[in-house]
Write a protein that binds this DNA or RNA. Structure first.
Lengths: 128, 128
DNA sequence: TTGCGAATTGACTTTTACGTAAATGCCGTG
DNA sequence: CACGGCATTTACGTAAAAGTCAATTCGCAA
């Protein structure tokens, strides 16, 4: 496991701009260390970026992603906080399950659409 | 099946504003008929709105939703167009499968996070 | 030491997806 | 027919999430 990544290495790996990574830092999603003014990204930062990109693809806002990332961290020490966190996690999971239903339905409709296209091709006598 | 829905009926059903439905009309996603200046939404419009909301929950932009909705429509008559459409549909399905992977991974991480919280509660001697 | 590319900062701009406000239209009811 | 209540149009506003640009500044190779 590499110790540090430069900002441009990560922009290439995740296909984002440096501006975007700095924006995420401003937003408190990542906190790379510095050598002088230069940012050094550790594997943990890289993993965070991976999670951010996943959240983005799923349509979560920066704030929602921030919340989700906090859920991945060490559980809090106080009982009330713990119970609250468990509740939040369960809510987020329900949201994700809804997204999954949406996803399956959309995939099913696209299946039908493709089928209809293929049938139409057959009608037109095109050999696939 | 009802013949027409009013705009407010649909805003309540889908929990969106009238502004939003008019915006979707401006964007060409729906095309309710008119009685005078008043919009009348048919079941087909209602179904479209359902599809739009699904797309939104999955994080698609208006333009992407427009594309997806076009895929649900009658297949085109010309062979080249048909083949192109099939290609587009396959691309969109691949995108959805990526989202599904993202979703499963996120759900798995949330499972872990919840587990950690529950364990922590047990350590603290809290009887769930 | 100088030069050069890569990195940083800060300010301004853009796009998307609506929100909000003002002025006005339509219509059923008392 | 006046009124209340929903609808509409037009126009401007805004928050989120970056993009873009200009002005440095660093680090290191020559």
């Amino acid at each position: 496991m590499r110790e540090y990544y430069t900002i441009t290495e990560l922009t290439r790996e995740f296909d984002v701009s440096t501006r975007t990574l700095r924006f995420y830092e401003d937003e408190g999603l990542i906190a790379p260390v510095r050598r002088g003014r230069t940012r050094l990204f550790r594997p943990s930062d890289r993993h965070l970026i991976k999670q951010i990109m996943r959240g983005k693809r799923l349509g979560f806002s920066i704030n929602e992603i921030r919340e989700i990332i906090q859920m991945y961290r060490e559980p809090p020490g106080e009982v009330g906080q713990l119970k609250l966190m468990i509740k939040r996690i369960e809510e987020k999971r329900e949201e994700l399950r809804q997204k999954r239903r949406d996803l399956e339905e959309t995939l099913a409709e696209l299946d039908n659409a493709e089928e209809a296209c293929v049938e139409r091709l057959v009608e037109l006598g095109v050999t696939t």
